[in-house]
């Protein structure tokens, strides 16, 4: 009776696969057309001179905006597919019974792939410590999850290349591990709000089985959500970046953002705190600044500070952490970011 081709679920599946193939082909075609099209518009259609300030700035803008938006949609889709295999529930199960050290490393790695929103930081924190996961390991997760941000990874990859994107992931991991181990060593359990310890440990929602079509649908939903949230910042950031690219002279920033200026790393960290969640708008500007002499360590420290030291998350966490622990949390993360910044300035 079950004719597989007329079965509605099967039909739906075929339709999604066909659609996916079509979108992939269109994606690659569009990606390869950006450069010639940007050049054509700027130099032929608008009659701008190659090498002029305005011509370069406009060609840069017309090339980078579609490129970054395409990269964002494509890579967020792939990352979201990967994330459908992980959930906070599974992460908690994987971390259960792990000791300090190995637990911190695992928690930081899981922080990259587990879907996480800072608005869920409190239930997650309570759920983790309630099930017996050490405080330091819980913090490693809570630091890695927002710090190693998928939008930032994609934009660093698109504007700086895979090496810088890799360094960013690596330094995020190091910061989360170091800060988590430090917090664990300090034995700060008494600075967790008392009601947290009085809560009943709960089991967690049973995991549902997902078909590939479900995973694709969910990934598509999160692409719409994430790209819908950041595209305006991307365009604004690239516009400012294009202006800097075209008009600011080379080496203009060596003095204030170069390796020799020792204070540039802490200053970059301070500057990054109020810019929370605007990684999308900040990275194109930073990329243009680097061309003009800012050093990589300083730039990475700034990036980490923008995504990792977030005011909203800190305010949310205040519900479960006493002020002393909040201070230690911010202090260790800031310190770890500054050390990483100097480290990269030193070795690169």
């Amino acid at each position: 009776m079950d004719n597989s081709l007329t079965h509605p679920a099967k039909q739906n599946q075929l339709r999604i696969i066909a659609l996916l193939a079509l979108i992939t082909a269109a994606w690659f075609a569009a990606y390869n057309l950006i450069q010639p099209l940007a050049d054509w518009i700027s130099y032929s259609a608008l009659h701008l001179t190659k090498g002029s300030h305005l011509g370069d700035a406009i060609a840069f803008f017309l090339y980078d905006v579609p490129k970054i938006l395409l990269l964002l949609s494509g890579m967020i889709f792939l990352i979201s597919i990967l994330r459908t295999f992980f959930s906070p529930e599974r992460t908690r199960a994987l971390l259960g019974g792990k000791r300090q050290g190995i637990g911190n490393v695992l928690a930081s790695l899981l922080g990259i792939v587990t879907p996480f929103c800072s608005c869920s930081a409190v239930p997650l924190f309570i759920g983790f410590v309630e099930s017996g996961i050490p405080l330091g390991v819980t913090f490693s997760f809570l630091i890695a999850a927002p710090t190693i941000n998928e939008v930032a990874i994609v934009m660093l990859f698109g504007l700086f290349g895979w090496k810088v994107a890799g360094l960013y992931i690596l330094s995020g991991l190091i910061i989360a591990i170091i800060a988590g181990v430090l917090i664990g060593r300090l034995k700060l359990e008494r600075y967790v709000e008392d009601f947290v310890w009085q809560m009943q440990s709960t089991g967690g929602l049973q995991e549902e089985k997902l078909a590939w079509t479900n995973r694709i649908e969910r990934a598509w939903e999160s692409v719409k959500e994430i790209v819908g949230k950041v595209w305006l910042y991307v365009i604004a950031g690239i516009a400012v970046g294009a202006g800097i690219h075209g008009y600011v002279p080379e080496t203009a920033l060596v003095g204030i953002m170069g390796k020799q200026a020792w204070w540039s790393v802490p200053a970059a960290v301070l500057l990054g705190v109020p810019l929370y969640s605007n990684a999308a708008g900040v990275i194109p500007i930073v990329s243009a600044l680097m061309e003009k002499g800012a050093s990589l360590g300083t730039v990475l420290a700034f990036m980490m500070s923008v995504v990792g030291l977030s005011l909203p998350e800190t305010i949310i966490l205040r519900r479960v952490l006493k002020p002393q622990l909040i201070t230690v949390f911010i202090g260790t993360v800031a310190l770890a970011i500054i050390i990483t910044g100097y480290l990269f300035n030193l070795v690169l």
Binding site: R92, P115, P123, L124, G127, M199, T202, G204, L205
Partner: peptide
């Protein structure tokens, strides 16, 4: 949050 955590929930 105290009410929310009465249910087996890790993320909202």
């Amino acid at each position: 949050y105290a009410e929310i955590m009465k249910y087996p929930i890790l993320s909202t």
